[in-house]
């Protein structure tokens, strides 16, 4: 998998997260690849994890059946992208 594809995927994920979670005070540029999605960082919460699970399934066919496991996948945009590419 080329670095270009990885970079492209991360940018796409940032845009989707902003749109899907309605983060109107955020821009793609304001989210770094390693910005934590939870806590300080984007400040997402438990219901957002579930929403991200829907996003992963809907757009990338990645199924995460256990929300606890989701916490690892949803550390930041890089961990999300890695999970998507691992499924391909």
């Amino acid at each position: 998998m080329s670095n270009d594809r990885m970079t492209e995927l991360k940018q796409e994920l940032k845009a989707r997260i902003i749109q899907h979670l309605n983060l109107q005070d955020r821009t793609v540029e304001s989210i770094a690849d390693d910005t934590p999605l939870f806590g300080e960082g984007l400040g997402l919460d438990s219901i957002d994890v579930l929403e991200l699970i829907v996003l992963m399934d809907r757009h990338y066919g990645v199924r995460i059946s256990d929300p606890q496991q989701g916490r690892e996948v949803f550390q930041n945009v890089t961990t999300m992208a890695e999970r998507i590419l691992a499924e391909k």
């Binding site: 979670l21 219901i47 957002d48 579930l50 929403e51 829907v54 809907r58």
Partner: peptide
Amino acid sequence: DEGVASPALFV
């Protein structure tokens, strides 16, 4: 339309 139940929209 898509068979997707969104938790954030459901609550």
